[in-house]
Simulated assay, not measured.
Amino acid sequence: MPHCPNCNQKWNLKKTLKAHGDHNLGTACPNCKEVQYVSRKTKQLQGFITMGYMIITFLAWREFELGAVPFFTVAILTIVLGIFILISATELSEELESGWRLIEDRKILEDINEGGAADISCPSFKHKDYPN
Rank of each mutant, 00 (worst) to 15 (best):
I76S: 11
K43G: 11
N6P: 01
F84I: 10
S93K: 06
V38M: 02
L25C: 05
N12P: 02
L45M: 15
P2Q: 04
T16A: 15
E65N: 13
Q9P: 00
I83M: 10
Y37H: 05
I108T: 06
H20Q: 04
T50Q: 11
Y37K: 02
Y53H: 10
Q44W: 13
L66C: 01
W100S: 04
N113V: 07
G116E: 07
E94K: 14
P5G: 04
S98R: 03
N12F: 08
Q44P: 07
I79T: 01
I108P: 01
G21F: 00
Q44L: 15
W11K: 02
R62E: 14
E91G: 09
W100F: 15
I108K: 09
D119P: 00
G26Q: 06
P70T: 05
K41C: 05
V38A: 01
T42P: 12
A117Y: 09
V69A: 11
I55L: 15
R101I: 06
E91W: 09
E104M: 06
V35K: 13
P2Y: 05
T78C: 02
Q9G: 01
I49A: 07
Y37V: 00
G47H: 03
K126R: 12
A60Q: 05
G115W: 08
V80Y: 03
F48S: 08
Q36V: 08
S39Q: 10
L17G: 01
T90M: 07
V80H: 02
Q46K: 13
F64S: 05
Q46T: 14
Q36M: 15
G26A: 07
T73F: 14
I49S: 11
L45F: 14
A60D: 01
A89R: 09
I103M: 04
T42W: 14
H127L: 04
T16C: 13
W100M: 11
G52V: 09
C122L: 11
A117D: 11
I85S: 03
E97T: 06
T27P: 00
G115K: 08
L86A: 10
I103H: 08
I55P: 05
K10A: 13
T78E: 00
S93W: 11
L45W: 14
L77T: 01
R62P: 00
R62C: 08
G115C: 09
D129A: 14
V38T: 05
P30Q: 05
G47A: 13
T27A: 02
G47V: 09
D129Q: 11
E94D: 14
A89E: 14
T50W: 04
Q36T: 08
A68L: 10
M54A: 14
A118E: 08
G67A: 12
G47D: 03
E104W: 06
M51S: 13
W11G: 06
E110R: 09
F71E: 02
D22C: 07
L77H: 00
I85W: 07
F48K: 00
E95K: 15
E94T: 15
G115E: 06
